[in-house]
């Protein structure tokens, strides 16, 4: 039998709905703004005339974006780094977390402390750069896959999952039946860890997709640039065009071209933001349940 709501409940519901709608608008409007600006005329955008709907709709920004080879190279590189990099991350994280979850591991505490130490202290950018340079990895795609191979935070979350979600008794019975450690890992632990693997894959993939700083530092070749770096370069293009214009020592035609580029860069950056975010926006609803589960997956229970 449905419970009858009191007047107070109804008033609360109304205010609740209004409040949540406001929160929804606040959160969705920036995304909507990005979309409508990317389809609007640059002059209208510069004049602040775009608010709810596109003004003087045009596909010029997207045409300019897709005309550039660098966008496609950036997409290719980002997909490559994300797929391989995430696979490398999972390859390191899951086994490390599994073995550290075993209380019988010799030197377990020391190993855990060493991992933890790296969360707070590091050699710095210059020594890291020198390391990669001495390994002949600088200006190769492998530096962007190998660097950041293991996130200790993610490893700790995974370790807690292994400790709390898979009963020790399963391993004991497997051991009694003659299973080796490798067999227990591959045939017991891994099949039962699909959720944590999915969560960690998602975490690493999002991180890899959005990263640009490693590429900025360790590579100079244009053909190795990931999408976020290409996006960043176009985002700051506007400032550079203004600097060229203000130098006062370029010809008139160069100045006009720089100004056109500066105006177009305004709308192009919004189209780029949308293009760069689109794959993740599309993928998120499908992996949302894992993400929600993953937020709590590494927590201690009971």
């Amino acid at each position: 039998m449905m419970k009858m709501k009191s007047v107070q409940d109804k008033v609360f519901d109304i205010f609740n709905i209004i409040f949540m709608l406001l929160v929804l608008v606040v959160m969705l409007y920036p995304l909507w703004f990005t979309i409508i600006v990317s389809f609007s005329d640059p002059l209208a955008v510069g004049g602040g005339k775009v608010w709810i709907l596109p003004v003087d709709p045009t596909l010029e920004a997207y045409q300019n974006v897709f005309k550039s080879d660098m966008i496609w190279i950036g997409y290719r590189n980002t997909i490559f780094y994300t797929v391989l990099g995430t696979a490398f991350n999972i390859f390191l994280t899951i086994p490390a977390a599994y073995v550290l979850s075993k209380k019988t591991l010799v030197g377990r505490n020391a190993l855990s402390w060493i991992f933890l130490f790296t969360m707070y202290f590091g050699g710095g950018l210059v020594p890291t750069y020198l390391l990669f340079k001495n390994l002949s990895l600088v200006n190769t795609p492998w530096v962007l896959i190998i660097s950041g191979g293991l996130s200790v935070y993610n490893m700790i979350v995974t370790r807690i999952f292994f400790q709390t979600s898979i009963p020790e008794e399963i391993y004991e019975s497997a051991r009694i039946d003659g299973a080796s450690n490798f067999r227990m890992f591959f045939q017991i632990a891994l099949p039962l860890s699909k959720s944590i693997i999915a969560v960690m894959t998602l975490f690493y993939a999002v991180s890899r997709w959005n990263s640009y700083f490693s590429a900025l530092v360790y590579t100079t070749k244009e053909e190795l640039a990931p999408l976020q770096l290409v996006l960043r370069r176009i985002l700051i293009l506007n400032e550079d065009m203004i600097k060229e214009i203000t130098s006062g020592s370029i010809s008139g035609d160069q100045m006009m071209d720089a100004l056109r580029k500066a105006q177009m860069a305004e709308t192009m950056k919004y189209s780029l933001i949308f293009i760069a975010s689109a794959p993740l926006l599309v993928a998120y609803p499908f992996v949302q349940k894992y993400f929600v589960k993953g937020v709590m997956i590494g927590s201690l229970k009971g």
Partner: peptide, 18 residues
Amino acid sequence: NPIHQDAISEQKNLMLAS
């Protein structure tokens, strides 16, 4: 060895440091 302008500062410092 062309270096993109948004990375020139970092690259210059790394080259000088190394």
